[in-house]
Simulated assay, not measured.
Amino acid sequence: MSIQKATINELNSLIELFDSYRVFYHQESNLEGARKFLKDRLVNEDSVVFIAYDEGNPIGFVQLYPSFSSVGMKRSWVLNDLFVNVTARKKGFGEKLIKKAIEYAEDTGAKGILLETGHDNVTAQSLYEKIGFKRESNFFYYFSL
């Protein structure tokens, strides 16, 4: 297995993974929309994507979005997307992708990484806690349109 930072050169490898990720979250498949969205993120450097390969085949990715801590006066990262193909799950790829994201956050001097997951996604929660993420209990999160 290898993990590399995605550039526009990896766009075609990412499209089906990203589309499958969206379908997992009950969205309709949209390969052209996925292409445009990812291309914009990569070209505009709006996010950082790491893609995992197993025997040369793309099997997963993690996408980080930049944020900042005004109090800490440092960059932070939002781990917004993590996906591993169904056929490659339970083999440690998700953990390796997250650890790559943590390494990148350390390399960029970030304050930390924030992520969220559903209350019912106990598999992901277990993985995050195993790696060292702590469940936040001091804050409420709100969302508005």
Rank of each mutant, 00 (worst) to 15 (best):
H26Y: 11
I15D: 07
R41H: 13
H119L: 14
I3A: 05
A105R: 01
M1L: 07
K134R: 13
W77G: 07
F50W: 01
F37L: 02
K91M: 10
L97S: 06
S20G: 11
L42M: 04
D19M: 02
Y65A: 15
R75Q: 11
I3E: 02
D107Y: 07
D107E: 15
H119R: 12
N121Y: 03
N44I: 01
N30T: 00
Y25F: 09
Y25K: 09
A6I: 01
H26A: 15
T87C: 10
G94C: 04
G112V: 01
F133A: 03
V71P: 10
A6G: 08
Q4P: 08
A110M: 02
M73R: 15
S144R: 09
E136M: 14
S47Y: 02
N121K: 07
S69K: 10
I3P: 11
N12W: 01
D40C: 06
Y65K: 13
A105C: 04
E95D: 15
E45S: 09
E129G: 13
S70C: 08
E103N: 13
V62N: 05
K39A: 11
Q4G: 13
T87Y: 12
V122H: 14
S137E: 15
A101V: 03
D40K: 15
K39E: 13
E136F: 07
V23Q: 15
K134W: 05
E16T: 07
T108A: 12
F83W: 04
Y128T: 05
